[in-house]
Amino acid sequence: MKPVLQVTDLKKIYGTGEATVHALRGTTMTVHRGDYVAIMGSSGSGKSTLMNILGALDIPTSGQYLLDGVDVSRLSDGQLALARNRLIGFIFQSFNLIPRTSAVANVELPLAYAGVKPKERRRRAMAALDTVGLAARADHEPNQLSGGQQQRVAVARALVTEPALLLADEPTGNLDSKSTDDVLQVFDDLNTAGRTIVIITHEDEVGARAKRLIRLVDGAIVSDIRQSPIHLPPVGAGFALSGRHTR
């Protein structure tokens, strides 16, 4: 079985001359289907740069990135758009919802770009919002939602196209502990359902729930620990599932 993503000797260099910054210094990693990977590192360790490259939002200076076995650097602009739409669900630290647009319209957006018919789109968007427990707030605009709710709308938007790979860049960085729990719960459930998740965090309790923990220092991987087996539900999933339904 092909790995969902595979990066080889990835380097990213910003600036030139004395101002040169090596954000990534030859990162190599492979993520298989169904895995739940947490990438940890201090600020400036290159984890966000890595995530942007994995999400096909940025291009590496050198190195190879295979997404579902396809070399991303060879994709045309249109194919890249297709890959972002169909293969990847990206969750930003700052939510990045479109302002003055209702939650459900935000969630519908990737489906619209995928060419799904309006009725079907609305149904799937509502289902996705239901998954994150926000179906009742579908008509609220982002500024009428709390940070945790906005982040859950963003999660719904990322999973509405049912991508194989969910990438989350510090999804809980701006959230309180209650909202953090809500969002992580959604991730656990999604992973249990078979989605591959790569999450960036600097919070230990978030990293502890993942099946695999990668630590990044100065743009290089320093440790890669398997915390729980890939084919079993994540550790947080069991009790949290029951907890979620009593909420």
Binding site: G78, R84, N85, F90, N96, I98, L109, P110
Partner: peptide, 16 residues
Amino acid sequence: TREIGIRKALGAPRRV
């Protein structure tokens, strides 16, 4: 421009 970035990240083709 930021909104355009979001739309691109969600898979909007340049043409659209």
